[in-house]
Design a protein around this nucleic acid. Sequence first.
RNA 1: GUCUCGUUAGCUCAGCUGGUAGAGCACGUCACUUUUAAUGAUGUGGCCGAUGGUUCGAAUCCAUCACGGGACACCA
Length: 503
Amino acid sequence: MAFENKFIQQRIEKAELLRKEGINPYSNDSQRNTTIEKYLNVNSDIEEKEDKRDENRHYIVSGRIKLFRIMGKASFIKIEDESGMLQIYVARDNLPEGFYNNTFKKNIEVGDIVEVSGYPFVTGKGELSLHANNVKLLTKAIAPLPEKFHGVTDKEIRYRKRYLDLIMNSEVRKTFQIRSRVISLTRRFFEDKGFLEVETPMMHPIAGGANAKPFVTHHNALGIDRYLRIAPELYLKRLIVGGFEAVFEINRNFRNEGMDATHNPEFTSIEFYWAYKTYKDLIEITKEYFQYLFGHLNLPVLLPYGDLEVNFENFQEIPLIKSLSTIGGVPEEIVNDKEKIIEFLSTQNITIKPGMNLGQLQGELFDEFVEEKLIDPTFITEYPVEISPLARRNDENPAITERFELFIAGREIANAFSELNDPLDQYERFKGQVDAKEAGDDEAHEMDEDFIDALSYGMAPTAGQGIGIDRLVMLLTNEHSIRDVLLFPAMKPLHNEEKNLEE
RNA sequence: GUCUCGUUAGCUCAGCUGGUAGAGCACGUCACUUUUAAUGAUGUGGCCGAUGGUUCGAAUCCAUCACGGGACACCA
């Protein structure tokens, strides 16, 4: 039951005692006139003053009490707001009569949110602090905070109770501030390039634009099922058909698949489509985009990621087939021979599904021998057509597509290509997908006749790209689990209440 | 989905080959007007994740389940 914990009971009693003294434990009249960061900056000159204080300055700061050290008739507390941590010196004789002994020491404690007014001074140990002449309780915390030194490290608690994680681990706040900056900068970058931000449906009649299992929901009024989108691609292309020449969307996609360190059922991507351009233009704008991000985030060009160091001035570009031998060490003479690849893979103890075609086998070689070795940003180009169902064929070599994927630190960060805009070709490829679905591939596309209809009106030659924002943020913040860059990562319910609904 | 490790006080963790539960912090009480994880004294605090089993006896051994971490598979 709620509130049965004895520490919570104790704190509820304190809140009651405060009420009896006429103090509202959930006061609403904050008078704060500065943040802690500003306070520390503005008063950095106090150190130089002869008596290391300035009683003529007066500030009101607010924050949560993180540390509480009582030393008889005086105390030091540390309070934290979003901008930082500040030490407060609270002495009995500087406060209203009786407040220190009867209220402050007894009924205010770690976790409470308080407002303190006073003047700046520097302590004997040299820490810029605030000398309090008034302490006001703003919010009583009735739940105790975790231990002050170790904090909360249990990942389950950190993800389930992110608010507690944010209270206890200030570096976590930084990660999410960077995430917000990345999204904001991304938006500004594309807007400045003349792209139009658009919103396309999250609920689709047909889950298209990627190969993935969708979530299903139901629209009562129409009596029909809808799919949470797995990608915005087909709607964004409809907008290109309609005459918009540069569009982007930053939003969530939903895929009904496994969860692990790099997958969450809902994830954020940017997709952008650019008419009259090709994938080569996308390579250039991608380089520019990274330069823009690094400049505005003040990130080092040699970016550490775990044990790795990624050089963001060393963008490489290499065709997939060539990378197999030069980077992957696969014998050059086998990479265009289906039988020899199968033989090679078996000598490497890699089992493959039967019936794979040449392009799929080349993709397999790439995944096994090349991908993890791509540390510095590398555009892998010229993907086999068999593994690129939505990409335009190369005019000279119809076996390859005008496509690249960008790999950084051994991980795919972006996928881009010149778009397939031939409606008959697209129709045939959808039909192939429908056949695959009937043969048991539950991730294959359905026929999207409305999209074919759209392409029939003519889509200008267009290049399109998707970038996984979560993984990008992981890279930029040196985080190694997607859960650490999602404020509220997907978790199983703690108690089995949902089970009843299923039965 | 598979394998593997974990789940003990509010938090961080001990608890050996089975004998009925410990520390630090937090909290209560006392002392202390410049501390830095303040300090000293003292006290309270546990259905040992859940359910079964083995046993005279289970936090400990076994099984099943739940939740979490990691790895693999699939995917972005």
